[in-house]
């Protein structure tokens, strides 16, 4: 059972940022915006507006939820640092879950599939793949994040993982690849971006099932350094 507990959700993994306040699983207020600037400074002003609209202070929350990506590093790092800054003084927990799991959660609610794949543009000529299975405590990430070079490789992995449904936050960026790779499967068309409200609801569900937070670091698909060390 989900206990009523004020939660602030921060989802900033894409250009479509979002903040949501939930009381238990009930959505109290939310703000969504589009920001293309690399510094993602809108997050803070949007948070202030959200608090004003909800008539709440920043010390009102018992738990913070943050989307961990995959996605833009600047936005992910800022949302994690912001959540930690908000949480530290009161000792409230920060619960991270991948933004792809939020997309998968919405996709599983929309279909009857047992498994759903979330596919995104990983840049550098790659797509990323995360496969999620339907569970009571929300989507469970099966296996590891995968980086794949092309549609053929993606087709092979979708078949091997017995994926029935595919969703992507980057459908606008990789439409041909998705069209080619999802033949014979259900493709939830359009860009399926993670929402802050969805993130908050998923975190409340996970907490109700005693599922621990994922690591409080962004999902890093590429290594930090691509050159060999000079002093190994």
């Amino acid at each position: 059972m989900v206990m009523p507990m004020p939660l602030l959700a921060i989802e900033n993994s894409t250009d479509h940022g979002g903040l949501a306040i939930l009381d238990g699983t009930r959505l109290v207020a939310e703000r969504n915006w589009i920001e293309l600037r690399p510094h993602r400074a809108a997050l803070f002003e949007e948070l202030r507006k959200l608090l004003d609209e909800a008539g709440l202070r920043a010390d009102a929350f018992d738990v913070f939820a943050v989307g961990a990506g995959p996605g833009g590093f600047a936005g992910l790092r800022m949302s994690m640092a912001l959540a930690q800054g908000l949480a530290l003084p009161g000792g409230a927990p920060v619960h991270a879950v991948s933004s792809a799991a939020v997309i998968a959660d919405a996709a599983l609610r929309e279909s009857s599939a047992r498994r759903v794949a979330v596919v995104g543009d990983a840049r550098r000529g790659r797509v990323w793949l995360g496969v999620f299975a339907r569970r009571d405590g929300g989507p469970e990430h099966i296996g590891e994040w995968e980086l794949l070079p092309d549609a053929d490789a993606l087709v092979g992995r979708l078949a091997a993982q017995e994926v029935e449904t595919v969703a992507s936050p980057d459908a606008d960026a990789i439409p041909e690849l998705l069209t080619a790779a999802t033949a014979g499967r259900v493709w939830l068309r359009g860009a399926r971006r993670p929402s802050a409200a969805g993130l908050g609801q998923l975190v409340q569900t996970r907490r109700a099932h005693d599922i621990a937070s994922e690591p409080l670091t962004p999902v890093y698909l590429h290594p930090a350094v691509t050159v060999p060390p000079r002093f190994p």
Binding site: L43, R77, A81, L82, G85, L86, P89
Partner: peptide
């Protein structure tokens, strides 16, 4: 900056 702003708000 993000952590500092979170603390400032809180």
């Amino acid at each position: 900056l993000a952590a500092a702003k979170g603390l400032a708000l809180r």
